[in-house]
């Protein structure tokens, strides 16, 4: 029973980890960049959803769409101005550009929004469904459903649309893609925008049970990287699987080990998986 409860909790929370990580994976797949500032876009998405709730009365589950749109547009601009110039630069330069971006975004948010911890109040946020002896938290379940929905939408976009196919082609072989007449720069911009927009969406749907402040992203950085690496950098489906794996490991390990060590367990699994399967649990397939 305890184990079943832990599995359910882990699955729900893990689905959300997965969706906020998809963008990280997508950006890596298409541009070969590890974006350390990714979690800052999660924070931006949460702020957008909070303001939508506070001033428009929108439930964060709906505000999430606004988060996606605004952060998507912002992400495209960031890609154009900051990321594009260093695409050809050494890997270390890319890492530190995104680290700098993280510092800038966090502190810009601090100056613009203040350091308050903001949270929303929704009718469902402190209730749960009871199935037999299992408690299923409503905000977790809704966030999970929204997360899967957006994950499926991205998958359909990549697999079924012309733009999505062009994006995957860019990921596989930029040179060939260019020769085929694909505007790879536009693809990069779109991929970055969709990637961070999706994370913002994920941030919005978890707002009903969390609080947002400028540094909220820092709690997610390591979780996102773990999810993405477990699933295989660059793989969208892998990110979801990796996210769920992270959630389940965290919640099941709490049955055996002190909760204080939940991240240690996670890191050990992480390093072992890398050692045994350096390409992640899910083999990379396209973007």
């Amino acid at each position: 029973m305890q184990l079943l409860q832990a599995l359910v909790d882990g699955l729900l929370i893990g689905g959300v980890y997965g969706v906020v990580s998809i963008g990280l994976s997508l950006v890596f797949g298409v541009m070969n960049i590890v974006n350390f500032a990714h979690a800052a876009f999660l924070m931006l998405g949460m702020f957008v959803a909070w303001f939508a709730w506070a001033f428009l009365g929108l439930d964060p589950l709906l505000g999430a769409f606004l988060s996606f749109v605004l952060v998507f547009a912002f992400g495209c601009a960031v890609q154009q101005v900051l990321v594009r110039p260093i695409l050809a630069a050494p890997q270390v330069a890319q890492i530190f550009l995104t680290v700098g971006l993280l510092i800038v975004l966090e502190n810009a948010a601090l100056m613009a929004f203040g350091a308050d911890f903001r949270s929303v109040q929704t009718p469902y946020q402190t209730s749960a469904f009871r199935l037999g002896g299992i408690i299923v938290s409503k905000p977790y379940l809704y966030a999970f459903a929204m997360a899967l929905l957006s994950g499926a939408a991205v998958w359909a976009f990549l697999e079924r649309t012309a733009v999505g196919r062009a994006m995957r082609a860019t990921a596989q072989d930029p040179m060939a893609a260019t020769l085929m007449g694909i505007d790879t720069q536009r693809m990069h911009r779109l991929a970055f925008g969709v990637g961070v927009g999706l994370t913002a969406f994920g941030g919005a749907v978890i707002l009903p049970y969390l609080t947002v402040s400028p540094t909220v992203g820092s709690h997610y950085v390591v979780l996102m990287f773990t999810a993405v690496v477990l699933g295989g950098l660059g793989s969208v489906a892998g990110a979801v699987v990796g996210g769920i794996a992270v959630g389940v490991i965290q919640s099941v390990s709490a049955l055996v080990f002190p909760i204080q060590l939940q991240n240690l367990v996670l890191f050990v699994v992480f390093i072992l998986v890398l050692a045994l399967r350096p390409d992640g649990i899910v083999r990379r397939r396209g973007a």
Partner: peptide, 14 residues
Amino acid sequence: AYPHGITDVTPLIN
């Protein structure tokens, strides 16, 4: 004890 910055306290409350 639980890690600072915990993102999910369900195991704790369980």
